[in-house]
Structure formats: C-alpha cells, structure tokens
Amino acid sequence: MTDTVSLTSAPAAVRILGIDPGSQRTGVGIVDVDARGRITHVHHQALAVSTGGADFPERLKRIFEGLCAIMDEYAPAETSVERVFMARNADSALKLGQARGAAICAAVVRGMIVHEYSPSEVKQAVVGSGRADKTQVQHMVAAMLGLKGPLQADAADALAMAITHAHTRASTARVGIPRAAWRRRR
C-alpha cells in the first residue's frame, strides 16, 4: 500500500486583519488571500470609539474590546498594523501611539504576530507611489477588491494595510528573504 499526496490541493486561504489605529476611529479591514495570491474582501468597518463623550481611557478600552470581538468573529490568522509616524502635534502622536498599543495588545492577546508597515509602504503597495493621498488609496482599494460605493477613509486604510501584508508575505515566500532584510540601512 502506498501513500498518495494530492498535488492539486492548494492550502486554504489565509485571513488577514488590517488595522488603522486612531483615537477617534479605528479602521478595520479583513481580507482572504489564496495560494495564488488572489485577495478577497471579507469585512471592513470603522470602530467609532469617541462616541458619547468617552474619555481617553474609555476609548482605548473600546479599541481593545472592539478588535477582540472582531477577531473572535472573523478568526484572522495574521494581523498588520500601521507603524507610527512622526506627527507635528506631540499630543496627537502620543494618542495615536496609545491607540496603536491597544490594537497591538488585542492581537497579541489572541496569539497573533503583528506585522507593521509604514504609511509610505502601504501607499507604495496599493497605489504604486509612497506619496499617494488618501483618496487615491480609497479608490485603489475599492478597485482591487471590487467594492461599490464610497469607502470610509479609516476602513480603506485598514484594508490597504491588509492588502500590503498579503503582497509582502507573497513576495517574501517567492524570494525567500525575510522582510527585515528588505529595509534600507540609513
């Protein structure tokens, strides 16, 4: 008796959660990517965390709990989050960093590794230019995923984050070089 291995069975799709953290709204985007690299839209939304006059600690709790609930419902295998950039306003940068921390904690509590991408890496992956504006990102995300109608900016950024990770993981697999080695030394 011989064991046979099916060469036609492709691995199941990988579900990727993209998060665009914010202290007012946190964007959430979920896509599936199959073995051939085809990306399919699963879910997107913006978590409105500042409603009802919530103080800042309450907003962080809403980010954490909202993302945990989404992860429980959609069961993503991988997570990508926007890397913090330098803002002109120090207070805004600190709040963004704390919102990002709440998002990262939600993923880590669920046992996921968090992949981080800068805004310019996301724009480059989705639009082809690291200097693209938000409307270009929204348009390309909608076109790539076949979405109709207007796409809320934070949700579009989160979907772009998930798409970027899908492209990066596929490139890493093809090339066989870890992503960390891609970065230019400054």
Rank of each mutant, 00 (worst) to 15 (best):
I104R: 06
S92Q: 13
A102M: 01
A77D: 14
T79H: 05
D91P: 11
A102I: 06
K95N: 06
S118E: 11
L67S: 03
N89F: 04
Y74Q: 10
E116H: 15
A77P: 04
I70P: 08
R83N: 09
S118Y: 07
P76W: 05
G128Y: 02
V126T: 03
S120D: 11
L94G: 10
V126F: 07
K95Q: 12
A93V: 00
F85E: 09
L94V: 13
D72G: 14
E73G: 11
I104C: 06
P119C: 02
A99D: 00
K123P: 12
N89T: 06
A93K: 03
G130H: 01
E82R: 10
I70D: 04
V109F: 12
G130V: 05
T79Y: 04
Y117K: 00
I113D: 15
S120N: 15
N89K: 01
P119D: 03
K123S: 11
G111Y: 07
V127L: 02
I70L: 14
A75Q: 13
K95L: 10
E78N: 08
K123W: 07
T79F: 07
E121M: 14
E73M: 13
S80H: 11
R100I: 05
V84I: 14
A93W: 09
E121Y: 09
G111C: 02
A93N: 06
V126H: 00
A103P: 07
V81I: 14
A99Y: 02
R83H: 13
A107D: 01
G130L: 03
S129N: 12
E116V: 15
L67T: 07
L67H: 10
G128M: 05
F85N: 12
Y74C: 06
L67Y: 02
E82T: 09
K123R: 11
A69C: 07
L96W: 04
S129V: 08
F85Q: 14
V126W: 00
G128S: 06
V122Q: 00
A87V: 01
Y74D: 01
M71V: 11
V81G: 03
M112Q: 14
A87N: 15
I113P: 08
Y117R: 01
D72V: 13
H115Y: 13
G97L: 06
A99R: 08
S80L: 12
A77N: 10
A93S: 09
R110T: 06
G101P: 02
E121G: 12
V114W: 02
M112S: 12
H115A: 14
H115M: 10
P119R: 06
M86S: 14
I104H: 01
E73P: 11
G111H: 10
I70E: 05
T79M: 11
R88Y: 08
R88S: 15
G97K: 01
T79S: 02
Q98D: 12
M71W: 03
L96K: 04
L67K: 09
S129C: 08
